[in-house]
Amino acid sequence: MMPQDEPEQARYIVTALRRGLSILTLFHRERRVISVPDIAFELRLSRATAFRMAYTLERDGYLQRLPNSNAFQLGAKVLMLGFDYFQGTEVVSCGREAVYALRDRTGFSAHMCVRDGTEIVYVLNAASNHRLRGDIPVGTRYPCHAVASGRALLFGMSEADLATLYRGVTMHAFSDQTPTTVVELFTTIESEREQGYAANISGFVSGIVSLSAPVRDRDGSIVAAINVSDSETVLKDLASVREEVLLAAAQVSAQLGWRG
Rank of each mutant, 00 (worst) to 15 (best):
G117F: 00
G20I: 02
Y122A: 10
Q73I: 14
H145S: 07
T178A: 11
V138P: 00
V78Y: 11
A148F: 02
F86Q: 12
I13A: 11
V228K: 02
P37I: 15
L24I: 14
G260F: 07
S231I: 00
V123Y: 07
F41H: 13
F83T: 10
A76H: 10
R11K: 13
Q73F: 01
E192Y: 02
G88R: 02
I201T: 09
K77T: 14
S253C: 12
Q64G: 07
L66H: 10
P214C: 15
L102I: 06
G139D: 01
A239W: 02
A224R: 06
M2R: 14
A160C: 03
D230V: 09
T170W: 01
Q87T: 07
V92W: 00
I34Y: 07
C113W: 01
D161W: 03
C144T: 08
C144Y: 01
E184D: 12
V223A: 09
S22H: 04
V33K: 11
E244H: 08
L26A: 12
V14W: 08
R218Q: 10
V245I: 12
A199F: 09
L124K: 13
L211C: 04
G168D: 01
M1T: 13
F51M: 04
L211N: 03
V223S: 03
T233N: 11
L26M: 14
V92P: 04
N125Y: 10
L235M: 15
G134P: 01
A48H: 03
K77V: 15
L81H: 05
R103K: 14
P179Y: 03
L74K: 06
E159D: 08
T170F: 06
S229L: 11
V114K: 09
A16V: 08
N70V: 14
S158E: 05
I13F: 11
G156L: 02
Q64L: 12
Q195R: 14
K77D: 15
R141I: 05
L17Q: 07
K77F: 12
V183L: 13
R65I: 14
S240G: 07
Q4M: 10
F86L: 15
S109C: 13
Y55K: 13
T187H: 09
D5G: 05
G220I: 06
A127G: 06
N129L: 12
L43M: 08
L17T: 11
E6V: 09
T118W: 04
F51K: 03
S206P: 00
G117M: 01
